[in-house]
Amino acid sequence: MNWNWDVIVEYFPRLIDGVWVTLELIFLSGLFGLMLAVPLALMRASQSRWLRLLPFGYIFFFRGTPLLVQIFLIYYGASQFDAVRESVLWPILREPYWCAIIAFTLNTAAYSAELIRGAIQAIPKGELEAADAFGMSRWLKIRRIVLPRAFGIVLPAYGNELILMLKSSSLASTITLLDITGAARTIIARTYTPLEIFATAGVLYLTIAAIMIGCFRLLEMRLNRHQHYKMPTELSAVDPRLSD
């Protein structure tokens, strides 16, 4: 095996261009996805049966079909219809970039909505009772108690979801986008050095994932700091056995 460093050095700038596309994709769809997921989660956790059932079909579809199928349906599928091609949305839907963002947004929103619903339902009952005892209105309670508490609870799981999305974003390369994977495949098509280029791409994904994990760890430490228990040092002064 000849490991070819030159090809990595020569094409590294093109892979870095891909890094920006990947980052844009996950940042924008993560943001839009979260904006969509919060109201959906509130509906899923609502007392009213109709509100609960409303987003069910959407979440069922997007959690139950492969992301690749969703991307193809939105990119190649929608463009088959004249109505779509003549609509005002065509300038957006004709761009692979926006099609990818739409697909990723809808996909991650479906997963995140269920995550957030779980978090909302995991809020200790006593805290909600306390809010009611204060006479908070429904929206005030949601704003001050439910969402901030749910946000803290959902963080570890949501960080996981974003990392999954980082990796799923490689599917954008199937609709001509030059994200990290797309750039890598285009380079390999020319150089026939899959090992070197895919290894480099893998390292780039790992680096992004490491940074994301670090950010979420920091955020968790900050937001959930009241939950971390540390044994007071005085206890071991009373009885050394307690420090074991």
Binding site: Y76, Q80, R85, R94, P96, T176, A189
Partner: peptide, 18 residues
């Protein structure tokens, strides 16, 4: 320049006007 995984996908995008 847009590069496709398969020729079929390139035809689809030619037909859609992309």
């Amino acid at each position: 320049i847009k590069l496709y995984d398969t020729q079929d996908n390139a035809y689809l995008d030619l037909a859609s006007g992309r």
